[in-house]
């Protein structure tokens, strides 16, 4: 096994996802086969090879430091679910009146 149920729970926590307890077993099995597949890379000798992290080898893209008008603020609020006093309003966030903040 490349990965176990405990690791799946831990990774889900990092990814801010909830895997329902009854499907953890099946999900782990599936993730395990995927991880086993990607770990075929172990067989490749990469000693001294630089990694490629970009699609195009283009460095230091500059522009004039000049203020430009951005997207209209009111426009940007169009996809906001709830708003109040010019801010995005969100549901209650802190369980005990905010003391944990």
């Amino acid at each position: 096994m490349a990965i176990n149920e405990e690791t799946v729970r831990q990774v889900a926590k990092l990814a801010k996802l909830e895997i329902e307890e009854e499907s953890v077993h099946a999900f782990t099995k599936e993730m395990d086969s995927i991880i086993e597949m990607v770990e075929q890379l172990e067989g490749l000798d990469t000693e001294g090879i630089e990694g490629t992290y970009h699609g195009l080898q283009q460095h230091n893209v500059w522009r004039e430091d000049k203020a430009e008008k951005g997207t209209d603020r009111e426009e940007l609020f169009k996809n906001v679910k709830t708003r109040k006093d010019g801010f995005i309003e969100v549901p209650e966030m802190f369980e005990n009146g905010g003391s944990e903040a």
Binding site: I3, L14, M31, E39, L41, E42, L44, G51, T52
Partner: peptide, 20 residues
Amino acid sequence: FSLSSGFYDAHFKKAAQART
């Protein structure tokens, strides 16, 4: 998982090298 601290070298970095 591939970016997490224990697996970054074996997964993400290795994949970037394979990409080269």
